[in-house]
Lab assay of single mutants.
Amino acid sequence: MLDDRARMEAAKKEKVEQILAEFQLQEEDLKKVMRRMQKEMDRGLRLETHEEASVKMLPTYVRSTPEGSEVGDFLSLDLGGTNFRVMLVKVGEGEEGQWSVKTKHQMYSIPEDAMTGTAEMLFDYISECISDFLDKHQMKHKKLPLGFTFSFPVRHEDIDKGILLNWTKGFKASGAEGNNVVGLLRDAIKRRGDFEMDVVAMVNDTVATMISCYYEDHQCEVGMIVGTGCNACYMEEMQNVELVEGDEGRMCVNTEWGAFGDSGELDEFLLEYDRLVDESSANPGQQLYEKLIGGKYMGELVRLVLLRLVDENLLFHGEASEQLRTRGAFETRFVSQVESDTGDRKQIYNILSTLGLRPSTTDCDIVRRACESVSTRAAHMCSAGLAGVINRMRESRSEDVMRITVGVDGSVYKLHPSFKERFHASVRRLTPSCEITFIESEEGSGRGAALVSAVACKKACMLGQ
């Protein structure tokens, strides 16, 4: 009897593995994704193909990295998701002549009506938060230079001027797309009239992360975010950046690689679950690469896999709870928690219980395998993109072996128990001629924006502006 049951459990697990095998990517698959990513990057950089390229390769006008001589107080704003952060950054000489960066910050959550109302409502709310922060720190009387981390696709015309191309991540505030974001912020500050600010720089969160990590390690020339969304930036040779005049030196390019796949480059790798996630998203047909990796989508992918296993009578005796059938019910943090389970399955059992399920031991094991399959594919897909960037940098610099540091931020990278190990191992397999160091950014977005502002202020002083 026991043997029969054991055989049935083994057969069930084997069927589960057959279904989950769809998520496995072979090294040849990853090399294919990497080569296609490089081709799209090239198209994004070139003037004649930029418009139709899915990977936009947006110039950021960040050319210099901090040298350690900029000092002063800077205000930093960070808008990239449902939370908005205001930070005071003091850049100065530390002990023994070292450079020191001290920060104080406060988080504000953005109400739904500000995210989806008008641009005026959104930026009025942001300036209200700045006003509140300055009151708390008794700094209303000071006109501070301000660095703005704005983590949406922007076409820069200068370091302090950028046109919002399109909202992502659930934002829909009308009247912002096609307009200068810094102008919208300046107008809102003017409307309030109770404080003055000098907006000197606007950067993407990947750029802010790279600059913040450069402060720790001067070989950091790539910034990457794996959180709600997924994106990367890197220092490109100016001669390859056709959208900006000049051939000397390097400029940081914001790849906006989340949109890779929007022209069909990933079609052969998309599964039924991916198509369902895409169809029910706020932007169907867009940001397809990001939807395979980002935390906004990972939990939902797992939920759809679990429903398939229920329908195949391989999980929960073929019956799903009402909660499990509800879109968004299986949160991405559950994926991390399930994979963090120590082996007694308590954590998995508790999560499934909150979803109205009474799982068996085998159910718990199957749910864990589903989570591992989805998150491992995410790590491997992400590795193909980064390997594409790094191999490109090595080739354009004609280096036999390139040493490089990548600064990384984002909740999936930082909080998932195995993502970074799987990701690092896969990147290294795909970049055999590179020695890569990964560092995690601390308060990256805010500190990085302030350091970019410090560079901009120093330049302005040198130019006598």
Results as ranks from 00 to 15, higher is better:
4 D>N: 14
4 D>A: 04
7 R>Q: 12
8 M>A: 07
15 K>Q: 03
16 V>E: 09
17 E>F: 14
18 Q>W: 08
30 L>C: 07
35 R>K: 12
41 M>G: 03
52 E>N: 06
61 Y>H: 07
62 V>M: 11
65 T>Q: 15
69 S>M: 06
72 G>L: 02
78 D>K: 01
80 G>A: 03
81 G>Q: 00
82 T>W: 00
83 N>C: 03
87 M>C: 11
92 G>D: 09
92 G>R: 14
97 G>S: 13
98 Q>C: 12
104 K>P: 05
105 H>C: 04
106 Q>N: 11
107 M>V: 02
108 Y>P: 05
109 S>A: 08
114 A>Q: 07
122 L>T: 03
133 F>P: 03
133 F>D: 00
134 L>W: 00
138 Q>W: 10
139 M>E: 02
142 K>N: 09
145 P>Q: 15
146 L>K: 03
154 V>A: 03
157 E>L: 13
158 D>A: 14
162 G>Y: 01
169 K>N: 07
174 S>F: 03
174 S>M: 02
178 G>F: 03
178 G>R: 00
181 V>P: 01
181 V>N: 04
184 L>H: 00
190 K>W: 05
191 R>L: 03
193 G>W: 05
194 D>L: 10
201 A>Q: 04
201 A>Y: 00
202 M>A: 06
202 M>D: 00
202 M>F: 01
203 V>H: 00
206 T>G: 07
217 D>P: 09
220 C>G: 14
220 C>T: 11
227 G>N: 08
228 T>R: 00
235 M>R: 08
242 E>G: 04
243 L>S: 13
246 G>T: 06
247 D>F: 07
249 G>E: 13
250 R>K: 15
251 M>T: 00
252 C>S: 05
252 C>P: 10
259 A>S: 07
261 G>H: 01
266 L>V: 08
270 L>F: 05
278 D>W: 04
281 S>Y: 10
281 S>H: 12
282 A>R: 15
287 Q>M: 05
294 G>Q: 02
296 K>W: 04
297 Y>L: 07
306 L>E: 04
317 H>M: 15
319 E>T: 15
325 R>Q: 07
333 R>P: 07
342 T>S: 07
343 G>Y: 07
349 Y>M: 10
354 T>C: 14
356 G>V: 08
358 R>A: 13
359 P>V: 09
364 C>P: 11
367 V>Q: 00
369 R>A: 07
375 S>I: 01
377 R>P: 03
378 A>Q: 08
381 M>C: 05
383 S>N: 11
384 A>V: 01
385 G>V: 02
386 L>R: 07
390 I>L: 11
391 N>K: 08
392 R>F: 04
401 V>Q: 08
412 V>T: 09
422 R>S: 14
426 S>D: 08
426 S>I: 06
426 S>H: 14
427 V>W: 10
433 S>C: 15
436 I>T: 14
436 I>A: 13
437 T>K: 12
437 T>V: 11
439 I>P: 02
446 G>N: 07
453 S>L: 06
455 V>P: 12
461 C>I: 09
463 L>E: 14
464 G>E: 13
